[in-house]
Design a protein around this nucleic acid. Sequence first.
DNA 1: TTGAATATACTCAAAATGAGTATAACGGAG
DNA 2: CTCCGTTATACTCATTTTGAGTATATTCAA
Lengths: 299, 299
Amino acid sequence: MTIGLAHAELMAVVAAVTSNEPRVMTVRSGEALPSGPFELGHRTLQSGLREWIQEQTGHPIGYLEQLYTFADRDRNNDIRGGRTISISYLGLVLEQDAPGAGRPAWHGWYEYLPWEDHRQGRPKVLDAIIEKLRVWADADPRRRAERHQRADFTFGLDHGGWNEDLTLQRYELLYEAGLVAEAGDVSDNFGRPMFADHRRILATGIARLRAKIKYRPVVFELMPSAFTLLQLQRTVEALAGLCLHKQNFRRLIEQQELVEETGGIASETGGRPAKLFRFRQTVVEERALSGTKLPLVRN
Amino acid sequence: MTIGLAHAELMAVVAAVTSNEPRVMTVRSGEALPSGPFELGHRTLQSGLREWIQEQTGHPIGYLEQLYTFADRDRNNDIRGGRTISISYLGLVLEQDAPGAGRPAWHGWYEYLPWEDHRQGRPKVLDAIIEKLRVWADADPRRRAERHQRADFTFGLDHGGWNEDLTLQRYELLYEAGLVAEAGDVSDNFGRPMFADHRRILATGIARLRAKIKYRPVVFELMPSAFTLLQLQRTVEALAGLCLHKQNFRRLIEQQELVEETGGIASETGGRPAKLFRFRQTVVEERALSGTKLPLVRN
DNA sequence: TTGAATATACTCAAAATGAGTATAACGGAG
DNA sequence: CTCCGTTATACTCATTTTGAGTATATTCAA
């Protein structure tokens, strides 16, 4: 019984947006996220993961950021001697034709979390979910009020309305309420399940990405080199699971000077041709962080 | 040579603000952050760390959030068989009198990163730093422009001015430029060094906290149960290393309904007595995330 | 009684946001 | 060719949110 020894595993939520649909890279026919052991040969966690994904899927990863590290005991019932530590990452790529064997399978992420897509209005599945959550809340007289409040908040039933950033909180609530298959022996469940806690990690990645697009120009990692403003908007909408106000969206993008015209024009828009834009690389460094929300005093 | 086996280590940046000075909990007379192995007996990473800190310092930790996981090979020149994975956390506490042995030593965090405190205006040490950075930038003719631009940006010499959130980027730049003792054999160095990469982790924690206070009500974890608005402001200022506009600060706090009056009054203010406030616990759940920055469309 | 020091209330212009209206430019149906 | 559906793009306008002050109120202590 060695103290402090553990198995280290790397795992990735690799996202792309193709035809306005957000997708995640999976293995085992959509049942698991790509993962693999952290090996001695790896220089860093990041480079280890890069190699791994590259080898497993043939896809080069552009953007890669650490998500979270898990090691709950009840999570991994480890048959081997030590514990397993899972270090998860969020990667952003342009989905391409898989070279060679074409191993990576891309699945729309709303297949796993169907209640998260509000682009066509409130999804119908929410009615059933709310229904079950009510039953669950009422089942414990002691915690009834608290449970109702939590359900109302995370699923946007109170004043605040739907908050797209609460993806993880929603999944965790469903898990606790026994409404997802991963929670064990449940009769009712929503969305396609995944292996172990992979769906939870997917939810973590989505939540992180939804929050991040608001203050960092990461969407561009998912865009081709030239794009129209509507394409950009559709991509953001796909990620956020919401519809945006077109005129205000372009105002926002333009005033922040995130893009510049390429000079080209896209004519296959179905209407008036649109100007093509490219991301202004310079802002990555300069606008690294959004403006402060603190009431500063100038000296 | 077992594949995927590693030593797991837990490490914490535990912060408190006492007499308007942000402090960090240290061991080894201020040279290291508290840390310890992740043991088989621990249920989760968090609970493992909680036990560990509690035992090592006698301090109970309220708020604890994961920071980052490191495992660079060149970072830990590991003498033992495997690699070491360091999982770091950020903790927030009210500094109290240490019970018993009083092991924890608190050190002001600007002792380690003196260029980060702009509350008394621009710190003088910055002049010397900029000077050395210029020399470093010029030393490589090929990367000169890029280095200058990076230095100007992270240290606020260009249009954008000082950005308090770039704490980690600044430390990393100084490290690369060989201006901190941890970078090896350097002649010039700034701030008090720490063991291994602990100062880098401290910078990571500060950066995270500075960013977080802007969109999540975490400051209250550092406040006593009742406080005046100025005390709250001074705490935020201590963390951000900046001075804030008093009237606008209270407007911000009040309009967000983060606090409510206790009814009490603090008379030892040195001037007109101030009303005491308490944090409104309800907002933790309800205002879990800030308002969206996306131009939504209502359906 | 007068300051020094802080608390708290208000003002006011500038900027950012939410929600539209108006007009332009394409392709295809008739 | 003309009208229509569809998308692009330019502007408008009221409301909110900021940034930066001014004005007043209370306290203690010299």
